[in-house]
Design a binder for these strands. Sequence first.
DNA 1: GAAAAAATTTAGAATAATTCTTGCTATCGG
DNA 2: CCGATAGCAAGAATTATTCTAAATTTTTTC
Lengths: 142, 142
Amino acid sequence: MLPATPTKRRKAAPADEQGGLRMTRQRQEVYETLLAHRDHPTATDVFLRVKDRLPNISLATVYNCLEVLVEHQLVRQVNFEREPSRFCPNLEQHGHFHDRGTGTILDVKFKKGVKLSDVLDLPPGAVVQDIEINLRGLLRTT
Amino acid sequence: MLPATPTKRRKAAPADEQGGLRMTRQRQEVYETLLAHRDHPTATDVFLRVKDRLPNISLATVYNCLEVLVEHQLVRQVNFEREPSRFCPNLEQHGHFHDRGTGTILDVKFKKGVKLSDVLDLPPGAVVQDIEINLRGLLRTT
DNA sequence: GAAAAAATTTAGAATAATTCTTGCTATCGG
DNA sequence: CCGATAGCAAGAATTATTCTAAATTTTTTC
Ligand SMILES: [Mn+2]
Ligand SMILES: [Mn+2]
Ligand SMILES: [Zn+2]
Ligand SMILES: [Zn+2]
């Protein structure tokens, strides 16, 4: 006999909720700001941009929104050295190239069909969950 | 006629100077501490270890020593996310694997003969000066 | 080898990105 | 509408790191 498990159906998500993330106005604007420019802005950059549309937003809220967007994997956090974190809405697996000349950060696609183990001598038993590839150099403007 | 260039020979480096780096006691101990364990310690870790041998060393000095060792390329600085920097005396080109289970950071060798351009779609004109590969995951202990 | 100059070390203060705390507001489920 | 939960804003707190200034050590000059 089955135990009397009450048929606890998953709580219906509100209309504006996506993947457990409640898309508030602030989160929406932060996310759209990232989508709009895709130039890997810092939290402060995002703050300044969003302020045009939401003049009362606080920097703490921008940090909160970015954190929750990262947690829900709508956005990636990109760190170069110990500089302020940057944020990227490109969800394809990719790396980053930092041009020391201009400070620009560019997305770098991974070539198709390349396996990590073709390139790296992984420690035995290593289960890789996350890959981060950061390049630094110069963009020779031809 | 040659101009009267005074025969300005390169200033002789003091005996303890290597590649422009003066190997002071503090730098020596910091460097040897890194060589001794190769477990990617933080500045504070190094500070605590070196204090056993140089009880008067200050944390600021450890930071200074690490900085100068990195500048002179005897040591590499390794950053995972926004955690405190770690330091690595392995000068071969390599990446790092961070085991989320234990916090251990392992060196990951690059396979021989693999070119970056085999793996990544580099932006046109990009001259890569520095490569950083950081992996995160679990070490399945078999 | 002393004096002067330069480099290094030290302790503590300052910095800056990020996180935390708290009170307020908005939204949700009923 | 009501109580509960989640999110926001402002400012304080945190913390790894850098800076400052005075003391010490090392190197150079005489
Ligand atoms: Mn920016
Ligand atoms: Mn450690
Ligand atoms: Zn990106
Ligand atoms: Zn290493």
